[in-house]
Computed example of a mutant assay.
Amino acid sequence: MFDRPGPRALLPAALCLFLLMPGALRAAEPAPAPAPKGEASSEQLRDRLADRLKEDAAALKLSTKPAGAAGGAADVKTANPVDLRARRSAKPAGAASAAKSSTPWSYTGEGAPDKWGQLQPEFRQCAIGTRQSPIDLRDTIKVDQERIQFDYKPSSFSVVDNGHTIQVNVAAGNTLTIMGRRYELQQFHFHRPSEERINGRQYDMVAHLVHKDAEGRQATVAVLLERGQDQTLIQTVWNYLPLERGDTYTAPVPIDLTQLLPRDQAYFSYMGSMTTPPCSEGVLWLVLRQPVQLSSQQISVFSHLYPMNARPLQAQSGRLIKESN
C-alpha cells in the first residue's frame, strides 16, 4: 500500500504544469519562497498557483496591447518623440496660401491693383467682390433724388502724406444727412486722375470726402476736379503739405469745407466699395455731377508727389445708378 504524497511532493508537479502554459512571464519575476515545512497544505498551494496564473495572464494581456489603442499616457511614452514634434509643427493644408505677402499695395508693380486681392487675406474682397468701386457712371436712371444736406463749418485740420495720397483729417462736427441718416466727415483725400468716370469721361483729379454714421456705415462724396482756375481750399491744403512722406502737419489756420463743393449739388448715387484695400463693400457713393476747377499749378503740385494713384474701373455688375433730374 502506497503512502499518500505530502505537500512538498505535489509542488514540483504544479510548477511543471505552470511552466508549460503558453506566454508565461516567469522570467521577469522572482520564484516564490518555499513555504515552511508543515504550514501549507496542497489546497493552499493550488490556490496560490491559481492566483499567480491570473496575475500572469493580466500582465500578458497588457504587454500585447495593439499600437495606437486608447489608453492615454502609456501610449504617449512609447511614441517616437521626433514624430510627435513633426506632428505639432506640421502646417494644415492651404496654410501657405493664407500667409501674408511682404509686398505692400500700390498702384504699379508687384503691389498693383490687379494683385491687391492676393497680397493679404483681408484684401480678398478686392478680387472677389461684386460691388466694387470705381465704376463708369452710365446707363443711369434719372429721378428726383433728395438734396444732400451738408452741414460743414470752418474747422481745424491736419495734412498727412500717407504714402498713397494726400489726406486731410478734420475736426469733428462736419456732417451730411441723406436718406434719413446722418454721417460725419472723417477725412478727405485726392486721386489723380479721377477714379470715377461719367459716360466714359475721366477728370484731372477727384476729392473723396469720407463720412461714417453712428453704426459705422460709410458714405463717400466724390468731387470731380478739372483744370481751370485756382481752388481756394486746395491751395490752403497745399500750403501745409508735410515735407516728408509719412509725416503729419497740423495747420495753424481753419479750413472752410464749403469751399470745396460745387454750386450745383445734383449727384449720382450707387452702392459700391472703398477704392483702396481692403475694398470693403456697402459704401454709399454720392458723386457730384458738376466738377470744381483747380489750376494747372495746383495739379502739378499733386502730380509731383503722386503722378497716378487711381484704381482702374470695376464691373458695374448690373447695379442701379440714380442721377438727379
Score class of each variant (00 low, 15 high):
residue 21 M to H: 11
residue 23 G to T: 05
residue 39 E to L: 15
residue 42 S to D: 04
residue 42 S to W: 12
residue 43 E to S: 09
residue 47 D to R: 15
residue 48 R to D: 14
residue 51 D to W: 05
residue 52 R to Q: 12
residue 52 R to W: 05
residue 53 L to M: 00
residue 70 A to D: 09
residue 75 D to V: 09
residue 75 D to H: 08
residue 82 V to G: 10
residue 83 D to N: 03
residue 88 R to P: 11
residue 94 G to F: 07
residue 100 K to H: 04
residue 104 P to Q: 03
residue 104 P to R: 05
residue 105 W to F: 15
residue 110 E to I: 06
residue 118 Q to M: 05
residue 119 L to H: 09
residue 120 Q to H: 08
residue 123 F to M: 03
residue 136 D to N: 13
residue 144 D to L: 01
residue 159 V to T: 09
residue 159 V to D: 07
residue 160 V to T: 10
residue 160 V to R: 07
residue 173 G to P: 00
residue 184 E to W: 12
residue 184 E to G: 03
residue 192 R to N: 13
residue 196 E to A: 10
residue 200 G to Y: 00
residue 203 Y to G: 00
residue 206 V to L: 08
residue 207 A to D: 03
residue 208 H to L: 14
residue 218 Q to K: 11
residue 221 V to T: 08
residue 222 A to V: 14
residue 230 D to W: 02
residue 232 T to H: 13
residue 242 P to G: 03
residue 243 L to M: 14
residue 252 P to K: 01
residue 257 L to S: 04
residue 258 T to M: 03
residue 262 P to D: 04
residue 267 Y to W: 01
residue 273 S to G: 11
residue 278 P to R: 12
residue 279 C to V: 01
residue 298 Q to H: 06
residue 309 N to C: 11
residue 310 A to K: 01
residue 320 L to R: 04
residue 321 I to W: 05
